[in-house]
Design a protein around this nucleic acid. Sequence first.
DNA 1: AAGCTAGCGGAGGGTTGCCTCCGGATGCAA
DNA 2: TTGCATCCGGAGGCAACCCTCCGCTAGCTT
Lengths: 193, 193
Amino acid sequence: MTSAGQAPEVFAQRPKRADARRNYDALIAAAREAFAENGAAASLEDVARRAGVGIGTLYRNFPTRRHLFEAVYVEEVRALCHSAEGLAELPPWDALVAWLHRFVAYVATKRALAEQLLHDSEIFTSCRAEIFSAGEPLMRRAQDAGVVRNDIGFDDVVRLISGLTMAQFPSPQQRDRVLGVALDGLRPPATPR
Amino acid sequence: MTSAGQAPEVFAQRPKRADARRNYDALIAAAREAFAENGAAASLEDVARRAGVGIGTLYRNFPTRRHLFEAVYVEEVRALCHSAEGLAELPPWDALVAWLHRFVAYVATKRALAEQLLHDSEIFTSCRAEIFSAGEPLMRRAQDAGVVRNDIGFDDVVRLISGLTMAQFPSPQQRDRVLGVALDGLRPPATPR
DNA sequence: AAGCTAGCGGAGGGTTGCCTCCGGATGCAA
DNA sequence: TTGCATCCGGAGGCAACCCTCCGCTAGCTT
Protein backbone atom coordinates (compact mmCIF):
# COMPACT_ATOMS: atom_id res chain seq x y z
CA MET A 1 0.00 0.00 0.00
CA THR A 2 2.27 2.76 1.27
CA SER A 3 0.91 5.32 -1.17
CA ALA A 4 -2.76 4.81 -2.02
CA GLY A 5 -4.76 5.28 1.15
CA GLN A 6 -7.56 2.79 0.53
CA ALA A 7 -8.38 0.02 -1.85
CA PRO A 8 -10.36 0.99 -4.93
CA GLU A 9 -13.89 1.93 -3.99
CA VAL A 10 -15.21 0.44 -7.17
CA PHE A 11 -17.47 -1.99 -5.41
CA ALA A 12 -17.15 -1.13 -1.75
CA GLN A 13 -20.81 -0.89 -0.87
CA ARG A 14 -20.30 -1.86 2.72
CA PRO A 15 -23.52 -2.37 4.61
CA LYS A 16 -24.30 0.08 7.40
CA ARG A 17 -26.35 -1.67 10.03
CA ALA A 18 -24.48 -3.60 12.68
CA ASP A 19 -25.89 -7.03 11.93
CA ALA A 20 -25.54 -6.52 8.22
CA ARG A 21 -21.93 -5.62 8.66
CA ARG A 22 -21.37 -8.70 10.75
CA ASN A 23 -22.90 -10.92 8.10
CA TYR A 24 -20.87 -9.30 5.40
CA ASP A 25 -17.66 -10.09 7.19
CA ALA A 26 -18.77 -13.60 8.07
CA LEU A 27 -19.54 -14.23 4.43
CA ILE A 28 -16.14 -13.15 3.28
CA ALA A 29 -14.45 -15.30 5.87
CA ALA A 30 -16.62 -18.27 4.98
CA ALA A 31 -15.99 -17.74 1.30
CA ARG A 32 -12.25 -17.60 1.78
CA GLU A 33 -12.45 -20.86 3.63
CA ALA A 34 -14.75 -22.56 1.15
CA PHE A 35 -12.77 -21.47 -1.88
CA ALA A 36 -9.53 -22.61 -0.34
CA GLU A 37 -11.08 -25.96 0.38
CA ASN A 38 -13.16 -26.74 -2.66
CA GLY A 39 -11.74 -24.46 -5.28
CA ALA A 40 -13.49 -21.65 -7.04
CA ALA A 41 -16.50 -23.80 -7.85
CA ALA A 42 -17.52 -24.12 -4.22
CA SER A 43 -21.25 -24.00 -3.69
CA LEU A 44 -22.58 -20.63 -2.69
CA GLU A 45 -25.16 -22.29 -0.53
CA ASP A 46 -22.32 -23.92 1.32
CA VAL A 47 -20.69 -20.56 1.83
CA ALA A 48 -23.88 -19.17 3.29
CA ARG A 49 -24.19 -22.16 5.56
CA ARG A 50 -20.65 -21.75 6.84
CA ALA A 51 -21.26 -18.12 7.50
CA GLY A 52 -24.41 -18.98 9.39
CA VAL A 53 -26.64 -16.82 7.23
CA GLY A 54 -29.39 -17.48 4.74
CA ILE A 55 -28.68 -17.80 1.08
CA GLY A 56 -30.68 -14.68 0.46
CA THR A 57 -28.30 -12.66 2.56
CA LEU A 58 -25.40 -13.86 0.52
CA TYR A 59 -27.03 -12.81 -2.71
CA ARG A 60 -27.99 -9.43 -1.35
CA ASN A 61 -24.40 -8.67 -0.47
CA PHE A 62 -22.83 -10.31 -3.47
CA PRO A 63 -25.20 -10.49 -6.40
CA THR A 64 -22.75 -12.61 -8.29
CA ARG A 65 -20.23 -15.29 -7.60
CA ARG A 66 -17.67 -12.98 -9.03
CA HIS A 67 -18.54 -10.21 -6.61
CA LEU A 68 -17.74 -12.58 -3.80
CA PHE A 69 -14.49 -13.59 -5.44
CA GLU A 70 -13.44 -10.07 -5.77
CA ALA A 71 -14.29 -9.14 -2.22
CA VAL A 72 -12.23 -12.01 -0.86
CA TYR A 73 -9.42 -11.26 -3.20
CA VAL A 74 -9.25 -7.60 -2.35
CA GLU A 75 -9.11 -8.42 1.33
CA GLU A 76 -6.13 -10.67 0.75
CA VAL A 77 -4.30 -8.20 -1.34
CA ARG A 78 -4.80 -5.52 1.20
CA ALA A 79 -3.22 -7.67 3.89
CA LEU A 80 -0.31 -8.53 1.65
CA CYS A 81 0.42 -4.97 0.73
CA HIS A 82 0.15 -3.88 4.29
CA SER A 83 2.93 -6.31 5.12
CA ALA A 84 5.37 -4.40 2.95
CA GLU A 85 5.50 -1.61 5.47
CA GLY A 86 8.36 -1.76 7.87
CA LEU A 87 10.56 -3.71 5.50
CA ALA A 88 12.31 -0.58 4.37
CA GLU A 89 14.62 -0.75 7.37
CA LEU A 90 16.13 -4.03 6.26
CA PRO A 91 19.03 -4.17 3.79
CA PRO A 92 17.79 -4.05 0.20
CA TRP A 93 18.22 -7.70 -0.67
CA ASP A 94 16.82 -8.94 2.60
CA ALA A 95 13.83 -6.66 2.36
CA LEU A 96 12.98 -7.90 -1.09
CA VAL A 97 13.40 -11.52 -0.12
CA ALA A 98 11.31 -11.11 2.99
CA TRP A 99 8.47 -9.60 1.08
CA LEU A 100 8.64 -12.22 -1.62
CA HIS A 101 8.32 -14.85 1.04
CA ARG A 102 5.10 -13.29 2.21
CA PHE A 103 4.03 -13.04 -1.35
CA VAL A 104 4.50 -16.76 -1.73
CA ALA A 105 2.35 -17.46 1.28
CA TYR A 106 -0.28 -15.20 -0.17
CA VAL A 107 -0.41 -16.75 -3.59
CA ALA A 108 -0.39 -20.28 -2.26
CA THR A 109 -3.95 -20.05 -1.06
CA LYS A 110 -5.25 -17.97 -3.90
CA ARG A 111 -4.66 -20.23 -6.79
CA ALA A 112 -8.22 -20.92 -7.76
CA LEU A 113 -9.26 -17.39 -7.03
CA ALA A 114 -6.65 -15.79 -9.20
CA GLU A 115 -7.47 -18.22 -11.95
CA GLN A 116 -10.97 -16.80 -12.09
CA LEU A 117 -10.02 -13.19 -11.91
CA LEU A 118 -7.08 -13.26 -14.26
CA HIS A 119 -9.20 -12.94 -17.30
CA ASP A 120 -11.04 -9.67 -17.26
CA SER A 121 -11.49 -7.86 -14.06
CA GLU A 122 -11.17 -4.26 -13.22
CA ILE A 123 -10.63 -5.21 -9.62
CA PHE A 124 -7.81 -7.47 -10.52
CA THR A 125 -6.11 -4.72 -12.41
CA SER A 126 -6.24 -2.28 -9.59
CA CYS A 127 -5.15 -4.86 -7.04
CA ARG A 128 -2.26 -5.62 -9.27
CA ALA A 129 -1.39 -1.97 -9.20
CA GLU A 130 -1.46 -1.99 -5.45
CA ILE A 131 0.79 -4.98 -5.24
CA PHE A 132 3.18 -3.26 -7.54
CA SER A 133 3.27 -0.10 -5.54
CA ALA A 134 4.03 -2.21 -2.49
CA GLY A 135 6.74 -4.38 -3.98
CA GLU A 136 8.31 -2.41 -6.74
CA PRO A 137 10.14 0.04 -4.49
CA LEU A 138 11.77 -2.87 -2.71
CA MET A 139 12.89 -4.23 -6.02
CA ARG A 140 14.22 -0.95 -7.31
CA ARG A 141 16.11 -0.35 -4.14
CA ALA A 142 17.76 -3.73 -4.48
CA GLN A 143 18.63 -2.99 -8.07
CA ASP A 144 20.08 0.38 -7.18
CA ALA A 145 22.18 -1.32 -4.56
CA GLY A 146 23.47 -3.64 -7.26
CA VAL A 147 22.23 -6.83 -5.64
CA VAL A 148 19.56 -7.57 -8.23
CA ARG A 149 20.15 -7.74 -11.96
CA ASN A 150 19.01 -4.78 -14.00
CA ASP A 151 17.64 -6.48 -17.08
CA ILE A 152 14.35 -7.52 -15.55
CA GLY A 153 11.30 -5.75 -14.20
CA PHE A 154 9.22 -6.23 -11.13
CA ASP A 155 6.50 -7.92 -13.11
CA ASP A 156 8.96 -10.57 -14.17
CA VAL A 157 9.71 -11.27 -10.56
CA VAL A 158 6.06 -11.43 -9.65
CA ARG A 159 5.38 -14.00 -12.28
CA LEU A 160 8.40 -16.04 -11.48
CA ILE A 161 7.56 -16.22 -7.82
CA SER A 162 3.82 -16.52 -8.06
CA GLY A 163 4.00 -19.18 -10.69
CA LEU A 164 6.46 -21.05 -8.61
CA THR A 165 4.10 -21.06 -5.74
CA MET A 166 1.23 -22.44 -7.70
CA ALA A 167 2.95 -25.74 -7.84
CA GLN A 168 2.25 -27.82 -4.80
CA PHE A 169 5.21 -28.72 -2.68
CA PRO A 170 5.38 -31.79 -0.52
CA SER A 171 7.42 -30.01 2.11
CA PRO A 172 8.13 -26.42 3.08
CA GLN A 173 11.82 -27.26 2.86
CA GLN A 174 11.60 -28.02 -0.79
CA ARG A 175 9.54 -24.95 -1.43
CA ASP A 176 12.17 -22.79 0.20
CA ARG A 177 14.95 -24.52 -1.67
CA VAL A 178 13.27 -23.90 -4.99
CA LEU A 179 12.46 -20.37 -4.01
CA GLY A 180 16.15 -19.97 -3.24
CA VAL A 181 17.07 -21.09 -6.72
CA ALA A 182 14.67 -18.62 -8.24
CA LEU A 183 16.06 -15.87 -6.09
CA ASP A 184 19.58 -16.72 -7.17
CA GLY A 185 18.41 -16.14 -10.69
CA LEU A 186 17.58 -12.59 -9.72
CA ARG A 187 21.11 -11.72 -8.72
CA PRO A 188 23.39 -9.97 -11.13
CA PRO A 189 25.60 -12.37 -13.08
CA ALA A 190 28.79 -12.15 -11.05
CA THR A 191 27.76 -11.00 -7.57
CA PRO A 192 29.15 -13.24 -4.85
CA ARG A 193 26.67 -14.25 -2.19
CA MET B 1 10.78 -42.49 -21.89
CA THR B 2 14.10 -43.81 -23.12
CA SER B 3 14.01 -46.72 -20.71
CA ALA B 4 10.49 -47.93 -20.00
CA GLY B 5 9.02 -49.21 -23.25
CA GLN B 6 5.38 -48.33 -22.72
CA ALA B 7 3.28 -46.27 -20.40
CA PRO B 8 1.85 -48.07 -17.40
CA GLU B 9 -0.86 -50.47 -18.41
CA VAL B 10 -2.78 -49.73 -15.26
CA PHE B 11 -5.85 -48.63 -17.06
CA ALA B 12 -5.19 -49.29 -20.72
CA GLN B 13 -8.31 -51.25 -21.57
CA ARG B 14 -8.34 -50.21 -25.18
CA PRO B 15 -11.43 -51.32 -27.02
CA LYS B 16 -11.00 -53.92 -29.75
CA ARG B 17 -13.60 -53.39 -32.38
CA ALA B 18 -12.80 -50.86 -35.08
CA ASP B 19 -15.65 -48.45 -34.40
CA ALA B 20 -15.11 -48.65 -30.67
CA ARG B 21 -11.49 -47.77 -31.10
CA ARG B 22 -12.40 -44.83 -33.28
CA ASN B 23 -14.79 -43.50 -30.68
CA TYR B 24 -12.25 -43.94 -27.94
CA ASP B 25 -9.75 -41.77 -29.76
CA ALA B 26 -12.35 -39.19 -30.70
CA LEU B 27 -13.35 -38.93 -27.06
CA ILE B 28 -9.83 -38.29 -25.88
CA ALA B 29 -9.32 -35.63 -28.50
CA ALA B 30 -12.64 -34.00 -27.66
CA ALA B 31 -11.86 -34.13 -23.98
CA ARG B 32 -8.47 -32.51 -24.42
CA GLU B 33 -10.14 -29.74 -26.33
CA ALA B 34 -12.99 -29.26 -23.89
CA PHE B 35 -10.75 -29.28 -20.85
CA ALA B 36 -8.39 -26.79 -22.37
CA GLU B 37 -11.31 -24.55 -23.16
CA ASN B 38 -13.56 -24.77 -20.13
CA GLY B 39 -11.26 -26.10 -17.47
CA ALA B 40 -11.53 -29.37 -15.66
CA ALA B 41 -15.20 -28.85 -14.90
CA ALA B 42 -16.23 -29.07 -18.53
CA SER B 43 -19.47 -30.93 -19.06
CA LEU B 44 -19.06 -34.55 -20.02
CA GLU B 45 -22.09 -34.33 -22.20
CA ASP B 46 -20.35 -31.59 -24.07
CA VAL B 47 -17.33 -33.79 -24.54
CA ALA B 48 -19.49 -36.53 -25.97
CA ARG B 49 -21.15 -34.05 -28.29
CA ARG B 50 -17.82 -32.77 -29.55
CA ALA B 51 -16.68 -36.31 -30.17
CA GLY B 52 -19.87 -37.02 -32.06
CA VAL B 53 -20.85 -39.95 -29.87
CA GLY B 54 -23.60 -40.61 -27.38
CA ILE B 55 -23.13 -39.95 -23.73
CA GLY B 56 -23.46 -43.65 -23.08
CA THR B 57 -20.41 -44.35 -25.16
CA LEU B 58 -18.40 -41.90 -23.15
CA TYR B 59 -19.37 -43.56 -19.90
CA ARG B 60 -18.64 -47.01 -21.22
CA ASN B 61 -15.10 -46.04 -22.08
CA PHE B 62 -14.50 -43.80 -19.11
CA PRO B 63 -16.70 -44.72 -16.19
CA THR B 64 -15.55 -41.66 -14.33
CA ARG B 65 -14.54 -38.13 -15.05
CA ARG B 66 -11.23 -38.99 -13.56
CA HIS B 67 -10.69 -41.87 -15.96
CA LEU B 68 -11.05 -39.44 -18.79
CA PHE B 69 -8.67 -37.01 -17.14
CA GLU B 70 -6.10 -39.64 -16.75
CA ALA B 71 -6.37 -40.89 -20.29
CA VAL B 72 -5.86 -37.42 -21.68
CA TYR B 73 -3.06 -36.74 -19.29
CA VAL B 74 -1.19 -39.92 -20.07
CA GLU B 75 -1.38 -39.15 -23.75
CA GLU B 76 0.23 -35.76 -23.15
CA VAL B 77 2.95 -37.11 -20.97
CA ARG B 78 3.82 -39.72 -23.48
CA ALA B 79 4.31 -37.08 -26.14
CA LEU B 80 6.43 -34.98 -23.85
CA CYS B 81 8.70 -37.81 -22.87
CA HIS B 82 9.06 -38.87 -26.43
CA SER B 83 10.43 -35.44 -27.19
CA ALA B 84 13.41 -36.03 -24.94
CA GLU B 85 14.88 -38.43 -27.41
CA GLY B 86 17.46 -37.01 -29.71
CA LEU B 87 18.43 -34.27 -27.30
CA ALA B 88 21.38 -36.27 -26.06
CA GLU B 89 23.46 -35.06 -28.97
CA LEU B 90 23.28 -31.45 -27.88
CA PRO B 91 25.71 -30.01 -25.34
CA PRO B 92 24.57 -30.71 -21.78
CA TRP B 93 23.26 -27.27 -20.94
CA ASP B 94 21.54 -26.79 -24.26
CA ALA B 95 19.91 -30.17 -24.08
CA LEU B 96 18.48 -29.47 -20.67
CA VAL B 97 17.25 -26.06 -21.66
CA ALA B 98 15.68 -27.35 -24.83
CA TRP B 99 13.77 -30.01 -22.99
CA LEU B 100 12.64 -27.62 -20.32
CA HIS B 101 11.24 -25.39 -23.00
CA ARG B 102 9.13 -28.24 -24.25
CA PHE B 103 8.17 -28.98 -20.74
CA VAL B 104 6.88 -25.46 -20.38
CA ALA B 105 4.75 -25.78 -23.46
CA TYR B 106 3.37 -29.01 -22.10
CA VAL B 107 2.46 -27.70 -18.69
CA ALA B 108 0.91 -24.56 -20.06
CA THR B 109 -2.10 -26.39 -21.41
CA LYS B 110 -2.41 -28.86 -18.59
CA ARG B 111 -2.98 -26.58 -15.70
CA ALA B 112 -6.50 -27.60 -14.84
CA LEU B 113 -5.81 -31.22 -15.53
CA ALA B 114 -2.79 -31.41 -13.29
CA GLU B 115 -4.71 -29.62 -10.58
CA GLN B 116 -7.15 -32.50 -10.47
CA LEU B 117 -4.64 -35.27 -10.58
CA LEU B 118 -2.12 -33.82 -8.20
CA HIS B 119 -3.89 -35.08 -5.18
CA ASP B 120 -4.01 -38.84 -5.20
CA SER B 121 -3.54 -40.70 -8.37
CA GLU B 122 -1.61 -43.77 -9.20
CA ILE B 123 -1.51 -42.70 -12.80
CA PHE B 124 -0.04 -39.40 -11.86
CA THR B 125 2.68 -41.08 -9.91
CA SER B 126 3.75 -43.30 -12.73
CA CYS B 127 3.58 -40.49 -15.26
CA ARG B 128 5.75 -38.51 -12.97
CA ALA B 129 8.19 -41.37 -12.98
CA GLU B 130 8.21 -41.35 -16.74
CA ILE B 131 8.86 -37.66 -16.90
CA PHE B 132 11.70 -38.12 -14.51
CA SER B 133 13.28 -40.88 -16.49
CA ALA B 134 13.09 -38.64 -19.52
CA GLY B 135 14.47 -35.47 -17.97
CA GLU B 136 16.68 -36.53 -15.13
CA PRO B 137 19.51 -37.86 -17.31
CA LEU B 138 19.66 -34.50 -19.06
CA MET B 139 19.93 -32.83 -15.72
CA ARG B 140 22.58 -35.13 -14.35
CA ARG B 141 24.64 -34.80 -17.46
CA ALA B 142 24.54 -31.04 -17.08
CA GLN B 143 25.53 -31.32 -13.47
CA ASP B 144 28.42 -33.65 -14.29
CA ALA B 145 29.58 -31.17 -16.85
CA GLY B 146 29.58 -28.52 -14.16
CA VAL B 147 27.07 -26.24 -15.83
CA VAL B 148 24.29 -26.82 -13.32
CA ARG B 149 24.63 -26.44 -9.57
CA ASN B 150 24.89 -29.61 -7.56
CA ASP B 151 22.83 -28.73 -4.53
CA ILE B 152 19.44 -29.30 -6.15
CA GLY B 153 17.60 -32.26 -7.60
CA PHE B 154 15.62 -32.76 -10.74
CA ASP B 155 12.38 -32.51 -8.84
CA ASP B 156 13.33 -29.03 -7.72
CA VAL B 157 13.77 -28.03 -11.32
CA VAL B 158 10.48 -29.55 -12.34
CA ARG B 159 8.62 -27.59 -9.74
CA LEU B 160 10.40 -24.40 -10.47
CA ILE B 161 9.68 -24.61 -14.15
CA SER B 162 6.22 -26.04 -14.05
CA GLY B 163 5.09 -23.63 -11.42
CA LEU B 164 6.47 -20.80 -13.42
CA THR B 165 4.45 -21.86 -16.37
CA MET B 166 1.21 -21.96 -14.51
CA ALA B 167 1.23 -18.22 -14.33
CA GLN B 168 -0.27 -16.70 -17.40
CA PHE B 169 2.01 -14.53 -19.45
CA PRO B 170 0.82 -11.69 -21.63
CA SER B 171 3.52 -12.34 -24.18
CA PRO B 172 5.83 -15.21 -25.09
CA GLN B 173 8.71 -12.78 -24.77
CA GLN B 174 8.07 -12.24 -21.13
CA ARG B 175 7.63 -15.91 -20.54
CA ASP B 176 11.00 -16.62 -22.07
CA ARG B 177 12.62 -13.82 -20.14
CA VAL B 178 11.33 -15.15 -16.87
CA LEU B 179 12.26 -18.65 -17.84
CA GLY B 180 15.73 -17.33 -18.50
CA VAL B 181 15.94 -15.93 -15.00
CA ALA B 182 14.88 -19.23 -13.54
CA LEU B 183 17.45 -21.03 -15.63
CA ASP B 184 20.16 -18.67 -14.45
CA GLY B 185 19.28 -19.75 -10.97
CA LEU B 186 20.20 -23.28 -11.93
CA ARG B 187 23.76 -22.42 -12.83
CA PRO B 188 26.52 -22.96 -10.35
CA PRO B 189 27.34 -19.82 -8.35
CA ALA B 190 30.34 -18.57 -10.30
CA THR B 191 30.09 -20.09 -13.77
CA PRO B 192 30.36 -17.52 -16.54
CA ARG B 193 27.86 -17.93 -19.32
C1' DA C 1 -41.39 2.61 23.72
C1' DA C 2 -43.02 2.84 19.46
C1' DG C 3 -42.58 2.97 14.66
C1' DC C 4 -40.03 2.70 10.55
C1' DT C 5 -37.30 0.44 7.50
C1' DA C 6 -33.09 -2.08 6.36
C1' DG C 7 -32.10 -6.49 6.53
C1' DC C 8 -33.03 -11.56 7.26
C1' DG C 9 -33.98 -16.40 5.95
C1' DG C 10 -35.25 -20.10 3.33
C1' DA C 11 -38.95 -22.17 0.39
C1' DG C 12 -39.31 -23.25 -4.21
C1' DG C 13 -39.14 -23.10 -9.36
C1' DG C 14 -35.90 -23.56 -12.97
C1' DT C 15 -31.64 -25.21 -14.99
C1' DT C 16 -27.84 -28.08 -15.66
C1' DG C 17 -25.12 -31.95 -15.42
C1' DC C 18 -24.51 -36.86 -13.86
C1' DC C 19 -25.10 -41.51 -14.84
C1' DT C 20 -27.96 -45.84 -15.82
C1' DC C 21 -30.27 -48.76 -18.73
C1' DC C 22 -31.76 -51.24 -22.63
C1' DG C 23 -33.61 -51.76 -27.48
C1' DG C 24 -31.35 -51.50 -31.69
C1' DA C 25 -27.30 -51.32 -34.86
C1' DT C 26 -23.00 -53.13 -36.52
C1' DG C 27 -18.40 -55.26 -37.05
C1' DC C 28 -16.53 -59.76 -37.42
C1' DA C 29 -16.04 -64.79 -37.92
C1' DA C 30 -17.50 -68.91 -40.03
C1' DT D 1 -25.04 -64.87 -45.46
C1' DT D 2 -26.02 -65.70 -41.15
C1' DG D 3 -25.50 -65.33 -36.26
C1' DC D 4 -23.86 -63.34 -32.28
C1' DA D 5 -21.20 -60.68 -29.28
C1' DT D 6 -19.93 -56.18 -28.95
C1' DC D 7 -20.96 -51.64 -29.03
C1' DC D 8 -24.00 -47.59 -29.83
C1' DG D 9 -27.19 -43.77 -28.58
C1' DG D 10 -30.00 -41.01 -25.95
C1' DA D 11 -34.27 -40.94 -22.97
C1' DG D 12 -35.03 -40.18 -18.40
C1' DG D 13 -34.60 -40.35 -13.25
C1' DC D 14 -31.83 -38.14 -9.83
C1' DA D 15 -29.17 -34.69 -7.43
C1' DA D 16 -27.03 -30.32 -6.94
C1' DC D 17 -26.99 -25.76 -7.48
C1' DC D 18 -28.64 -21.17 -8.83
C1' DC D 19 -31.27 -17.28 -7.76
C1' DT D 20 -35.76 -14.82 -6.75
C1' DC D 21 -39.26 -13.45 -3.85
C1' DC D 22 -41.73 -12.12 0.13
C1' DG D 23 -43.39 -12.43 4.95
C1' DC D 24 -41.03 -11.69 9.20
C1' DT D 25 -37.23 -9.87 12.51
C1' DA D 26 -34.75 -6.65 14.78
C1' DG D 27 -31.59 -2.41 14.69
C1' DC D 28 -31.93 2.44 14.91
C1' DT D 29 -34.19 6.98 15.59
C1' DT D 30 -37.10 10.13 18.00
